[in-house]
Every structure is written in C-alpha cells, then in structure tokens.
Amino acid sequence: MGARIGVYPGTFDPVTLGHMDIIRRGAKLVDRLVVGVTTNPSKSPMFSLDERMATVRREVADVEGDIAVTSFDSLLMDFAVREGARVIVRGLRAVADFEYEYQMAGMNQQINATVETVFLMADVGLQPIASRLVKEIALFGGEIAPFVPPAVRGEVAAKVAAKVAAGDAAQSSRG
C-alpha cells in the first residue's frame, strides 16, 4: 500500500483563514496533501492563477505535513487520479455548503468510486468566512484582517486600490 494522498481543491481567491484551517487539519489525515488551485468559470477572480498559486504556496510553507500546491483545469476526479489521490478533502461551513458538497460528492462517486470525499467542519470561529464575502468587504472598504492571513490582507488591499485607481482613471477620461 502506497502513501495516502489527498487533494483539497479550490479557487483560493483569496486564501482565507478558513482554507488554512482545513489545510492544517487535512494534512494530518493523509501522508501527502495536494492543494489544487483551480479556475471556476462561474467566478471572476480577483487574483490570477499564478498569484493564487504563489500565495497558497507561501501560506502553507510553515504548515506541518507533506503539502504540495499545484494548479488544475479539469474535472476534479481526473485531477485526483492524476495526483494518485484516494481522498478529496472538503471543508463545510454551513448547511448550504453541505447540500452542494453532498451533491458533488455523489456525482464524483459516480465518476470514480475509488476516490472518497472527506468533509471537515470548519472551526466554529471561522465558519462565516468565504472568499466571496472577503472580496466584497474589501471592495467596500471594510476590514478583512479577521478573515485572512496578514500578507493576504495586504495583497487584497493592493488589488482593491488598483481597481479603485483604474475606476478613477476611467471616470476622468469620460469626464
């Protein structure tokens, strides 16, 4: 029997303290955890794929365990097979997450029954955190420090400032 490999997929746009909690805990369940950074056609990312990869790599550098970060742009089950994974790690925050994740796990099992999905409940203090909400709070000038690692806070602030500056420049060119 080889090493137990798990994958933790997500867009990580931006990576949050909730993601980091699942990565820390997931890494304890497998011999090797592959964090799969993906694109999601239904989302418009704040950060490029390369930026998200670099951020996740930096943030997991001090996490205990064998953790790899790689990108993928395929079906999750194809990615899991490519990585040699037998487990998909997913974080759950609320009942709404469960309904979606339950449906996805069922579909994934139909595609490949040899890969199991393991759900980890988010830490109670981190349950409300969602990347989408972090971006929304930041865009409206709110404080995101309680939701993201310190370096990520600065990166989000820089993206918001650039977006505001671009909007101001577009506004004055029309004026």
Rank of each mutant, 00 (worst) to 15 (best):
G91F: 01
T38E: 10
S71I: 07
V60Q: 01
F79S: 05
V156K: 09
P45Q: 11
T70D: 08
G26Q: 09
R52N: 15
A96K: 13
A96D: 12
R153S: 14
M77C: 07
G18Q: 10
R24D: 04
L33M: 06
E99P: 01
Y100A: 10
R4C: 03
S131I: 13
Q110L: 15
M53L: 11
F119A: 10
A157K: 10
T117W: 05
A145M: 11
R82W: 12
V60H: 03
A138Q: 08
E116I: 01
D66R: 00
M121I: 11
A27P: 02
E83H: 07
S173D: 05
M107T: 12
S44T: 12
Q127P: 08
V156Y: 00
A61V: 02
G36N: 02
H19R: 05
E143N: 13
Y102T: 12
I111F: 11
V156D: 09
V115S: 09
I5H: 01
F79D: 07
E59Q: 13
I137H: 13
P150C: 06
A166P: 05
V37D: 01
G106K: 01
A169F: 07
R32W: 00
Q103T: 13
R52I: 15
E155H: 04
I5G: 00
E101P: 04
A166C: 11
N108P: 04
A68R: 12
E83Q: 15
L49K: 10
I22A: 02
R57Y: 04
E64G: 03
V118T: 06
E64L: 05
T117K: 05
R58W: 06
M53T: 05
G175K: 08
F98H: 04
A85E: 02
G142A: 07
D123E: 08
I144P: 01
I22M: 08
A113F: 14
K43N: 12
P9H: 09
A105S: 10
Q127F: 05
Q109T: 15
R24M: 08
D66C: 00
P9S: 04
D62Q: 15
A54C: 07
D97R: 14
K163N: 14
A94H: 13
S71R: 09
D31Q: 03
I88K: 02
V152E: 00
T117M: 15
A3L: 07
K163F: 06
R32I: 00
V152D: 00
D62I: 09
Q127G: 06
V34F: 07
S173W: 15
D97P: 14
S48C: 09
A3R: 00
G10C: 10
S44I: 14
L49Y: 03
R132G: 12
H19G: 03
E116T: 05
I23E: 02
L139M: 11
I23T: 02
A122V: 09
D78T: 10
P146K: 12
A165H: 07
R57E: 13
F72Q: 01
G84P: 04
D31T: 00
V124I: 11
A27R: 00
V89G: 00
G141Y: 05
Q127A: 10
A130W: 11
Y100S: 06
R86G: 11
F119W: 12
A157M: 09
A161W: 02
V134I: 07
E136M: 08
R25K: 11
M77F: 09
V115T: 05
T38N: 15
Q103K: 04
D168Y: 05
G36K: 02
R132F: 05
G84F: 12
G106C: 03
R86K: 14
P128H: 07
T11R: 06
D97T: 15
Y102F: 14
Q110R: 09
I22P: 03
